[in-house]
Amino acid sequence: MSKKNEASLSRRQLLRRRFFRNKSAVFGLVCLMIVVFLAVFGPSLSPWSWNLSDENGLDFNAFTESPYGGGLTAPSFDDGHYFGTSQVGADVFAQTMRGLQKSLLIGLLVAVFSTSIAAIVGASAGYLMGKTDRALMWLVDLLLVLPSFLLLAILSKWYQSSGWLLLVVLLAIFNWMITARIVRSVSMSLRERDFIRAARYMGVPTRKIITKHLIPNMASLLIIDGTLNVGGAILSETGLSYLGFGVRAPDVSLGSLIAEGTASAITFPWLFMFSGGLLIITVLAVSLIGDGLRDAFDPGSRSGKKS
């Protein structure tokens, strides 16, 4: 495509074109769409329920049909166990879909929350400078040196009883600091730009400058970082759930399913490979999309550099 042609396109069209030219990003997008589709519609594709207390939660026939013993049956389409059944006769497909739903939801929410916090804190610090900057950066440094994973593990008793939304908030609280630092340095350069100065001298209130002028001008950075944060958040959540500090039974997440299936990875692989595979695909897809977005926003930076 010629330079001239590109210039006549709107910025949005240009971005779209650059993004779709990137094969790995498109691959990531397709994967993510499939994963989201599964998370949303997966549970209704199966005659079985993820909730073991439901009437169709446990398949008691699996116990008589199992060639291995227990409730274990390999994946098959005959009785609707697309991913097989577990030792207690639970449908692995229904559980995996539910776990995917939970992990994706938690990942997305954490990314949105933590990127928002990062944007507000980073922009305020970078724009206001002085004492505000010192105080906020002190907070960032403090949170950075805290062993967040350990703290979450210790707090797990408390948040596990009050529902998974609290887990989202806590994960977000420990996830925004690096982005905030990048945002701060970008804000520091932006605040000296003419349009910000003009706004300031015209008497636009600080809050408005930050929300209306600073942050929109960093949108590309925030979108890229937010996307990459989704992958990190999903990994944090699954990590916590794997160790038993995250989502708890009777609810499931990819992490808790992987934890249950690890021991059977070689012997009864269907207990492990679907949840493990979906986790890899999801995080990979999100990362590829993030890289694609970065390349689209900033063609000068090629994949491999830190945004």
Binding site: L52, S53, L58, V88, G244, A249, P250, A263
Partner: peptide
């Protein structure tokens, strides 16, 4: 923790009592 058989009993009991 780390006792799959006892976790199975817990899971099944939970499912049966909540049903």
């Amino acid at each position: 923790t780390n006792y799959p058989n006892r976790a199975n009993i817990a899971t099944l009991t939970q499912a049966m009592l909540r049903a």
